[in-house]
């Protein structure tokens, strides 16, 4: 590394903080809205640093005195009142985690096969997998609705988990395949000659090497499911709803409940943040380092 002068280091620091501020400020502002009283939200000029914080919005959104009523499955009442969004947050968490787990499991197995095994039409298979994602989701939402209705998956966790995993699969397969492709085939072959079975090679040798890839793919899948709107909107009724869909119910004929919406949004950031934090430590590069002669 070159030794940089003091002034250029200062410029870099300033630019760095400016970029961080650019991205962090909207988040911060959103948080302040969540902690403001109704009328304070509309103050002009907006009070960014000094206002009287209150947790009223959170109390309103999550039910009385901050009790997360997980057991209760009460319907969202449009137009304000007691929203009880705790269960909705739980819905989001369950769906995002399980659909991510499902997508990752299938994608990892499939992409290992696509990367390592030779079978007829392998390349066509890869492009076919990708092509399934080219269709706009709206085009499949209605047919899926009827299919789900017939087979009883409508308004169930299983239904939403399946569709989210399905939507994530093409990208996950492609991404995971590129991680497997980066591992030299000689590593598998060497284990094969040493007497290991395909499954053992996959589990003991290859899987630990794509840990970082799995983590990266999982983050993408999780974020997709966490923010997905269309399928949850069409495929659920009263049984469950995820945060993006219930957020939209704050927009009512009598006005938008900005404070409640901000409170729910702020709260919804936490599980996603925790998930990414947990996964992030696996996002290490260079797991194949030292394996083969460069």
């Amino acid at each position: 590394m070159m030794v940089r002068s003091k002034s250029s280091r200062m410029v870099r620091t300033i630019v760095g903080w400016a970029v961080v501020a650019l991205f962090a400020f909207p988040l911060y502002y959103w948080m302040t809205v969540a902690f403001k009283e109704g009328n304070e939200i509309f103050n002009w000029p907006p009070k960014v640093w000094s206002f009287t914080p209150t947790i009223k919005n959170f109390e309103e959104v999550f039910g009385i005195s901050f009790g997360f009523g997980f057991g209760e499955q009460r319907e969202v009442l449009p137009g304000g009142g007691n929203f009880r969004m705790g269960p909705r947050l739980w819905d989001s968490i369950v769906i995002a985690i399980l659909s991510t787990a499902l997508a990752i499991t299938i994608a990892t197995l499939a992409s290992y096969a696509l990367s390592r095994m030779n079978f007829r039409g392998r390349h066509h298979f890869v492009s076919w997998v990708l092509s399934t994602r080219m269709m706009p989701p709206v085009a499949v939402a209605i047919p899926i609705f009827f299919i789900y209705k017939d087979i009883g998956l409508l308004d169930t966790y299983t239904g939403v988990i399946l569709i989210h995993a399905l939507m994530n699969l093409p990208l996950a397969v492609l991404l995971m395949k590129s991680f497997f492709d980066d591992i030299p085939g000689e590593i598998d072959e060497s284990a094969l000659v040493d007497g290991a079975s395909r499954w053992l090679i996959f589990r003991r040798i290859v899987l630990p090497m794509v840990k970082g890839g799995i983590a990266a793919t999982a983050v993408l899948c999780f974020i997709f499911s966490w923010t997905e709107f269309l399928f949850v909107l069409t495929l659920t009724q009263t049984g469950l709803k995820t945060v993006p869909v219930v957020s939209s119910t704050f927009v009512t004929s009598t006005g938008t409940a900005w404070g409640s919406m901000a409170a729910l949004g702020a709260a919804a950031m936490i599980p996603a943040f925790i998930f990414i934090l947990l996964v992030q430590k696996h996002l290490v590069r260079g797991l194949t380092l030292g394996s083969v002669k460069q």
Binding site: P184, I187, E189, A191, V193, A196, S197, S291, K293
Partner: peptide
């Protein structure tokens, strides 16, 4: 199958298991 040939091989590029 390679597994059933009972041969041992040292690869030109080593092919070590990097996570072990």
């Amino acid at each position: 199958h390679p597994r059933d040939r009972d041969v041992a091989m040292v690869f030109q590029n080593y092919a070590l298991y990097p996570t072990m």
